[in-house]
């Protein structure tokens, strides 16, 4: 212990590996993804083709955007469990309002609850300092209540999926899913915001050491409120994309995506304690989960088993990252 400062000791392979994982989490993740695809190919020879890749991308994109919400909130040490409800709300409102409203009006109406929920989340977390988990869980409960009331008012008018969302959700252009037209700008924007703008740096700063950030003059509540509103807006947009993909508006449309979105961000190397991580890892994490889901479906694993597996993955990865950070 005493001479470790003066004498450079040989670093063991395990530690080097750990450090490597911590510095470049993307490489092991991509290796894992390739392994999963290979297993899939071995189990079902010929499954991996152009159509399969396009299909996987289509299902991974909504998950990746929602996981983006989790990534950004996790960077500040938070989490946003209301994304499922927000996405469902905007999708449901869009599908029912488009029947007798102008598309623009329907879009604005669909985004309204997203902004409101984001705002309430932000104020609750930023001003009142409620734990984000509890806060977002509460607003999602309230949101679901509103949706149930709303559903009864539109039961007569029916619902339809706008052609544009249909095109965006399921269409292909030269073999590429059209959802990429939405996803690429969103992803670029998130990565750019996190790495190159002041707001992104504030998110990292707040998550890394909130007290230090405050003392250096960061307006905590403003950052947090803006963050949760952005997260909710992204979730709302995902809802629109997802309804174009699933094509069946229901009151629990995007709910099954919440847990995988958390898992994707955690697997992608974003620390749930804040301050560490990035969006690129999350995208690979979302791809891994989508491929894994296909794999588990082929192996006839029921929904319950999948949830158990995802839960353990979150716990295992978090514990592993904790060890890596402690070692540094």
């Amino acid at each position: 212990m005493t001479n470790s400062a003066t004498m450079p000791q040989p670093v063991s392979l395990g530690r080097r590996l750990k450090r490597f994982m911590a510095d470049r989490p993307l490489i092991p993740l991509i290796i894992l993804l390739v392994i999963l695809v290979l297993i899939l190919q071995v189990l079902r020879p010929g499954i991996v083709n152009e159509r399969w890749i396009a299909n996987t991308a289509k299902f991974a994109i909504p998950l990746a955007i929602l996981a983006g919400c989790q990534t950004m909130t996790m960077l500040t040490g938070g989490i946003d469990l209301s994304v499922g409800t927000v996405a469902t709300m905007s999708a449901f409102i869009m599908a029912t309002q488009i029947v007798n409203q102008d598309p623009t009006v329907a879009f604005i109406l669909a985004m309204l609850p997203a902004v409101l929920i984001g705002l309430v989340n932000g104020v609750g977390v930023g001003v009142f300092r409620v734990h984000p988990l509890i806060m977002t869980l509460g607003t999602s409960l309230i949101g679901t209540g509103f949706l149930q009331v709303y559903q009864r008012t539109v039961i007569a008018s029916g619902a339809k999926i706008p052609d544009f969302l249909n095109w965006l959700g399921t269409g292909l252009t030269y073999g590429f899913p059209n959802a990429l037209f939405l996803f690429v700008p969103v992803a670029v924007l998130i990565v750019f915001t996190l790495n190159r703008t002041g707001f992104g740096r504030l998110l990292y700063a707040v998550g890394d050491n909130e007290r230090a950030a405050r003392l250096s003059g960061v307006r905590y509540w403003q950052v947090i409120t803006a963050l949760y509103v952005i997260s909710s807006l992204l979730a709302g947009i995902t809802g629109l994309l997802y309804i174009g993909l699933i094509k069946a508006p229901s009151l629990s449309l995007a709910e099954p995506l919440v847990l995988p979105s958390v898992a994707a961000a955690v697997i992608g190397g974003t620390s749930i304690f804040g301050g560490r991580g990035g969006y690129m890892g999350t995208i690979v994490g979302a791809l891994i989960l989508t491929v894994l889901t296909t794999l588990l479906t082929i192996l006839h694993m029921p929904e319950g088993g999948r949830r158990i597996l995802f839960g353990f993955m979150v716990l295992f990865v978090t514990a592993a990252y904790l060890r890596i950070i402690e070692d540094k």
Partner: peptide, 22 residues
């Protein structure tokens, strides 16, 4: 694991939910 309880119980929330479905 020394992971904060809020994260561990979030993970077990998923696990128990899955087990209930099974």
């Amino acid at each position: 694991t020394r992971v904060p309880d809020i994260v561990v119980t979030l993970a077990t929330l998923f696990v128990l939910q899955g087990a209930a479905l099974l």
